[in-house]
Structure formats: structure tokens, C-alpha cells
Simulated assay, not measured.
Amino acid sequence: MGRIRCLFRPILAGATLRERLLACGGALAALCVTALLGYFVVGPKAALPFLVAPVGASAVLVFAVPTSPLAQPWSVIGGNVLSALVGIGVTAFVHDTVLAAGLAVGGAIAAMSLCRCLHPPGGAAALTIVIGGSVVAAAGPLFAFVPVGLNSVVLVGMGWLFHRLTGHTYPHRAPRVDPAERRSRFRAEDVDRALIEVGEAFDISREDIGLLLREVETQALVRRHGEPTAGDVMSREVVRVTVHDTPETARALLLAHDVRTLPVLGPDGTVVGTVGLRELVRPASCVSEVASPPLTAPADLPALALSRALTDGHAHAAVIVDADGGLCGMVTQTDLIVALCRALTDAV
């Protein structure tokens, strides 16, 4: 039984049963909406299909691996439409089906690569043109836009809505190069050289590879020296402001206590933001108008797990909160350095 269960383990890194079930539901809803809209646009008596098969493969990418470069909107729309146009061009000059099929798919790969919209279902879109018969041939270049382009646009729109509702980002935004990279033991050029050395293409952007490697460093650090928690190292006497305090009050507290960040509390005492001198340069009548979203963490989180978040150039402190979002303390960059020194000393 153990070996049988292994066969059903997801091959995608980070995949969970919940994510896969959500992807199934999202694809179901998206394909239904795409087919319905295509039906109304094409019309019930039209010879053209209202849904093309390559869109099913596109749905797998958009909903199951939305972070893939192959699943981004330009890849889906541009890849499918451009490939269909290549297929139409090939069939106009090559009448042997076998030769036309190979030329269409090969040409689609070349065209998508040149236009930076590589999308595997695009090969199926090009092949559909070749083997689609008289209906596709009669439609001419229009087929690349209706139904292929229409299906692709609707699918991308449904993907954006679905991932927004489920808390994911789509289109995927690769992390920007930040100060954390300069403090890592590897650089972007190291990633480039490693990819060249391996000699394989991976379905993940270089920026995401760097982000993943930095997180691996953090988790390895926690594994080796992860005993102190955020609650152990946090500062418990925390200067704070409320959403109704004025920027002048916040500025005076920052300077008087020589701190860089103040947590902002809402009327119920929960942490709703943070404010520092950087935010206070903007004109405002109260602190709530300029506060930034807080970096929060529970007290039982390993303190060293905050290392990446506190070295990315954005946050100078993490607000430690309880289960209800109430303020417990603060872990600053200085607190984190002290915790790291203690962990390394204990290890020796």
C-alpha cells in the first residue's frame, strides 16, 4: 500500500491536496464560463466551434501551476493566437497534412519563443488548424481570434478572478532583486551559471529560483539553530500609537525613544499597521492615513525564521501578535542579531 500511495504523490514541488482540489474546481468553473461565452459569441447555428481543445491544456497551467512562466496571460493569449496564425499560414502553402503538421508545430514553437510567449498548448492550437478540416479552413485567419483568442482571453480572466478569490497572485509577479540578495551567499549570476552547468530548462523563473534558495537558507538556519522563538527574543515594552494619533505625535515618539518603527493599534487594540519616519514624510491628518501594512508573526515562531523578512530592505521590525491580533511585542533587526549570536554561541 505504501508504494501505491507513492504513485499518487504530486510531482510538483509545494503541491498539496487542497491546492489540487481548488485547481480542479477553478478549471471546472472557468471552462464552463469560457464555453458559455463562446457559445453566445459564435452562435448556436455557426459552423465554428465555440470551444477549442487546447484551452483545456491551458486551463491545467493557469489553475494548477499559476506561477509558471508558461501560464502567464501573455503566454496563454499570445501563445495560442500566434500558434493558430502560424498553423493558418502553413496550411495556406503546404497541402500535405503530415508535413504541414510538423511545420505548424515547429513554427509555432519558434514564433512563441521569439515573442516570449512560449505556451505548450500553442502547439496543439497550431495542430488543430492543420487537422481541423473544412470548417477551420473556411474560417481563415478569423479562427485564430474567434474562438481561439476569445477562449484564451476569457480563460485568463477567469484565472485572475479565481486566484484573487483564493488568495494567490495571478499574473505571477517575480520577486524583485532586493538587499537580501546582496547578503546571501549566492548572487543572480551564480544562478545563471548553475543553470548553464545543469544544461536543462526549468519551469520557474530565475528570480523565483533565487527566492526559493534564500528561503532554503532561512529554513536550514532555523533547523540548525531554531530553538529561540520570537516570543523569547522580542521586546515587550513597545511604544505604540493608535489610528487616531497625529503624525506629529508619532514623529515625536520615534525621536524620543530612538526607534524606527511604531505599531499602529486600531480601536479594538489589534495591530492594523506600522509607521516610521519614511511614512511620516507624506502629509496626513492622522496616522491611519500613512501607516504601512504590518509584518506580524506569532510568538511561537522560531526567531530565526524572521531573518529573510527583516533583511529584505522593507521591514525593520516584526510585530509579535497573539491569536486575536493583539500586540505582544516587537522583534527588531537588533533583536534578531542577538538571537543569532546566542544560537551560534550555544552551538559552539
Rank of each mutant, 00 (worst) to 15 (best):
D178V: 11
V198I: 15
V76Q: 05
A57T: 07
A125T: 05
A111S: 11
S152V: 04
G56N: 05
A138H: 14
A174P: 02
Q72V: 04
G122H: 09
N80H: 11
H168R: 15
E181P: 01
P121L: 10
W74S: 11
V90R: 01
R164N: 06
A101G: 08
V153D: 08
P175K: 00
P54I: 08
H95N: 12
I77S: 02
V136F: 08
V90Q: 03
R116A: 05
G56M: 07
S113H: 14
A108Y: 00
A111N: 10
R185C: 13
P69Q: 02
R176S: 14
G79V: 10
G122E: 05
A137Y: 09
S113F: 11
N80M: 14
P171T: 05
A124P: 00
C117I: 02
Q72S: 01
S83L: 07
I88N: 04
F93M: 14
A104T: 02
P147L: 12
V154D: 09
G159A: 05
V62H: 03
V146P: 07
P147C: 14
I129N: 00
V156K: 06
G167Y: 10
R182M: 12
A111W: 06
I88Y: 07
V90Y: 01
V146R: 08
N80G: 09
P66R: 06
A100T: 02
